[in-house]
């Protein structure tokens, strides 16, 4: 294994590495879109609820976040399929098209699963953004910026947001594991040929080398993401400087 040879699948006799390479693009695309969706929903929502603290806006945003955190993603997935595929027919219910084949079809197929996966993450990130922003908005330097004549836009989007980012990216990094775990369920529901689905199939088939390969692959991805998060820290918090010490 250390030499990079993950062995052969017991069922299909293909190399495990080849199987992973085939499956990885779909999973990575799914995760990236889910992450994008969660950030695009969560950060504005979190900012609104912090700035309009204890108003209807805040309660509304927190309700959405609560739903996001509470709804299990397999159920969210099923609901999405029922509403948007069966009733409205806007999106295909299952399947996957690679980016290289057709970008539009690719996005169309991944929209629902990415949303099902991203919604949970969005709930968590919204709450973290809100509490982090509330904390930062109480700081003296926020008052300094107002005293300099800064508009609320500058205060919130430039200064407060940058200072709130550390806990937000930390929670995104930690929950990346949740996202990876979620792909197993979501890929199965939406029949996406990613490594999550591969894992489920190989478990049913007792295909140990493949199981091992998938687990290793997931672990490597997780470590890489943690590294990216650590590197982002240095950008958001200048006190962290990896060139010194």
């Amino acid at each position: 294994m250390l030499s990079g040879d993950l062995g052969h699948s017991l069922v299909s006799d293909k190399e495990v590495l080849t199987l992973l390479w085939e499956r990885l693009p779909a999973t990575m695309a799914l995760i990236m879109y889910a992450l994008l969706i969660s950030v695009v929903i969560a950060i504005p929502l979190g900012i609104i609820s912090a700035v309009r603290h204890n108003t209807r806006w805040d309660y509304g945003a927190m309700l959405i976040a609560l739903i996001g955190v509470s709804v299990p993603n397999f159920w969210a997935g099923l609901l999405l399929i029922m509403t948007f595929s069966l009733h409205l027919g806007w999106f295909p219910s299952t399947g996957y098209v690679d980016v290289t084949q057709n970008l539009w079809k690719h996005l169309e197929h991944l929209a629902l699963p990415a949303f099902a996966l991203g919604f949970l993450q969005a709930g968590i990130v919204t709450r973290m953004t809100r509490s982090s922003m509330l904390e930062v908005l109480k700081q003296d330097y926020i008052c300094t910026i107002r005293a300099k004549g800064g508009t609320e836009k500058v205060v919130i989007l430039k200064h407060a947001l940058k200072n709130s980012m550390i806990p937000i990216i930390t929670i995104i990094g930690i929950n990346f594991g949740l996202l990876l775990g979620g792909t197993v369920v979501v890929e199965t529901i939406f029949s996406i040929p990613g490594i999550g689905q591969l894992l489920v199939q190989s478990v049913f088939n007792r295909d140990y080398p493949v199981i091992q390969g998938v687990i290793l692959c997931v672990a490597v991805i997780y470590v890489l993401i943690s590294l990216v998060v650590d590197l982002l820290y240095a950008y958001f918090d200048p006190k962290i400087d990896y060139n010194e010490g």
Binding site: D140, Y141, C143, I145, K148, G149, N163, D237
Partner: peptide
């Protein structure tokens, strides 16, 4: 008020440790 704040009227705060934004130069 915003247009005069920091412009024709400005303020120096008590605690210089916490009055500068740590994330900007």
């Amino acid at each position: 008020l915003r247009s005069i704040r920091g412009n024709s009227m400005s303020m120096i705060f008590q605690d210089p440790m916490s009055s500068l934004d740590p994330a900007f130069t």
